[in-house]
Design a protein around this nucleic acid. Structure first.
Length: 544
RNA sequence: UGGGGGAUCGUUCAAUGGUAGGACACAUGGUUUUGGUCCAUGGAAUCGGGGUUCGACUCCCUGUCCCCCAGCCA
């Protein structure tokens, strides 16, 4: 995790420092709009911006781009703060800043631009503005209000601010070039009238700055040196530069990179919002969602997400990352930190014929074979156990290393057993397996050189607890989905899982590996009477 | 049919005029009280066509394909 960021952006920064275009302290920012929850695509931007600032001994702050009150809310602001804290650590988050704190300054600078005769109030309605903007092939037409006097523009702009007009009645536009090939430069709108309640400034303002006008000023005020954003803003860079140049204020360098996309997932807030609103998922933090809060509930760690996005690198080429790649880093982290437990998802009784019914004993089980400091626990063993239904096969092929009549397997941490028979009900369903155990193999080992290829997990029938276990699958069934490709079986709920008694205590911070099955965490809906687990990811499995 | 960007193993990122390399995925073998982990090995790529050069993923010309842009969203 200490690896150095080395990509085309750090190359640019290195050049800028070498050519004295920039100080060696590099300041960045993570500037989300609070109009939805953060997803793993944002995590890439977060680790890039915070990582660069750290690497170049500068600062990185969380700044909310809260310039559109019609889409934003405190709920989103709070969720974003929680997510960034969780990802980068509470002490590394930097300052929490808001574009709305700069509204006064932006207003002053707009007046300044009007005074330079570089901005004007336009009375055209939305349709006329659109029509007169032209398109790729058609030149724009200058607004009839474009050449108002500076004094009149100042007066009208103040009136706009003071609430003398209705929404949409007037806008403030920059006076650039209606024939520019880049349509963003055809007199872009700087302010629109919005009589809306802002989550932070309330009803103080009824004019709100547009992104292009606001963003560069925000960066400038914060002394950002390199303003990193995604590819779709490339066309906006000339405008970013134009405003800062005319204003003669600190001018950060905007650099664009390709955002993250992943197979089997949808990223746009528009689509994620639909999944939530249409109840396809159970909220923004549904464990199937690619949101930070969803991944966290699913049992992902910040470290796994960080290692994943860092492994991806940074480039301008648009790329779709493989979901497997993310899961690899999750397993890598979870393998080293999770507590091993034995849990049976689809239980079937196993009776040990030569084990005394009254007897019972405790066997020692290591908590993490990767790390002995995790210690061990004692688990109860008795005559009747539960094992996994699919660990038995009536007519087993040679390579089936588990239970079948006459075959010997190891019960993990316990004994070798040999299957003696099985019972089915009238429908042919397996209801009970019988076996004998070898008392000399306590702990699951013998020194006689016996080869026991298979090892299966189990729980003691009279000691185990019941739990609900939620298994998740991809939300979409094709690699590059649209909302039409919802995977209908993306969630399976198992209500009668049998779990070892050491899991009785609900601990939301702990990661578990259920032996031979996968990684699991307690779901937030768990309580001491209702143990609920989410599967984070299954173990890799080469069998079948 | 305007403007802006991009094209390297299946996927993703390197190589900045000098042996195309890593990770994931896949395959094979080894270790193993998890068919996990770990270890080893293997297959696998420079979008096409010209040119410059002793030498081109890299520079030049040309073609093709992909992405973004016509919100009072960000």
């Amino acid at each position: 995790m200490t690896e150095l960021l080395n990509n085309f952006i750090t190359d640019i920064i290195d050049d800028d420092i070498k050519n004295n275009k920039s100080k060696s302290f590099i300041n960045t920012r993570f500037p989300p709009e609070p109009n939805g929850y953060l997803h793993i695509g944002h995590a890439k931007s977060i680790f890039l911006n915070y990582g660069i600032a750290k690497q170049y001994k500068g600062s990185c702050n969380l700044r909310f781009d809260d310039t559109n009150p019609t889409k934003e809310s405190m709920d989103y602001i709070n969720s974003i703060i929680d997510d960034v804290k969780w990802l980068v650590g509470i002490k590394n988050i930097g300052k929490i800043l808001y574009a709305s704190d700069y509204f006064d300054r932006m207003y002053e600078l707009a007046i300044e631009l009007i005074n330079q005769n570089l901005a004007y109030v336009d009375d055209q309605n939305i349709d006329d503005i659109k029509k007169n903007r032209g398109d790729y092939n058609i030149q724009g037409i200058e607004s009839p209000y474009r050449n108002r006097s500076i004094e009149e523009n100042i007066k009208l702009f103040k009136n706009m601010k003071n609430g003398m007009y209705q929404d949409g009645e007037k806008v403030l536009r920059a006076k650039i070039d209606m024939n520019a090939k880049n349509i963003n430069l055809r007199d872009p709108i700087m302010y629109r009238i919005l009589h809306a309640h802002h989550p932070r400034t309330g009803n103080e303002w009824c004019i709100y700055p547009m992104y292009d006008w606001a963003h560069g000023i925000e960066d400038s005020i914060e002394k950002i040196t390199h303003s990193i954003c995604t590819l779709e803003f490339e066309d906006h860079r000339p405008l970013y530069d134009w405003f800062l140049e005319k204003l003669k204020i600190h001018h950060p360098k905007q650099i664009e990179f390709a955002k993250l996309s992943m197979t089997y997932t949808l990223f746009s807030k528009r689509n994620l919002l639909k999944l939530v609103d249409n109840n396809i998922v159970d909220g923004w933090d549904d464990p199937r969602m690619p949101t930070i809060s969803g991944l966290r509930r699913r049992g992902y760690t910040a470290k796994a997400i960080k290692n994943f996005v860092l492994s991806l690198g940074v480039a301008k080429r648009e790329a779709i990352s493989d979901f497997n790649h993310l899961e690899y880093y999750l397993r890598e982290d979870l393998n080293s930190i999770s507590y091993r437990k034995m849990v049976v998802l689809d239980p079937v009784k196993l009776i040990i014929e030569n084990y005394n019914e009254e007897e019972s004993e405790f066997l020692e089980a290591e908590n993490n074979p990767e790390n002995s400091s995790y210690g061990s626990r004692m688990i109860p063993f008795s005559k009747e156990l539960y094992i996994e239904r699919n660990d038995f096969m009536e007519n087993a092929p040679k390579k089936f290393f588990r239970l079948s009549v006459g075959r010997e397997v190891r019960l993990k941490h316990a004994y070798y057993i040999t299957c003696t028979g099985f019972k089915t009900d009238e429908t042919g369903k397996l209801v009970e397996i019988t076996c004998t155990y070898d008392p000399s193999t306590k702990g699951g080992w013998s020194n006689d050189g016996r080869k026991v290829r298979g090892t299966i997990h189990w729980v003691s029938a009279k000691d185990c607890l019941n739990a609900e276990i939620r298994i998740y699958n991809r939300l979409f069934n094709i690699e590059r989905p649209t909302l039409d490709n919802i995977h209908l079986d993306s969630k399976t709920i198992i209500t009668n899982a049998k779990i070892e008694p050491s899991l009785v205590e609900v601990d939301f911070n702990q990661k578990y590996q259920f032996l031979r099955l996968g990684y699991f965490v307690f779901d937030k809906e768990s309580n001491e009477n209702n143990l609920i687990f989410n599967q984070s990811v299954a173990l890799r499995n080469n069998w079948k």
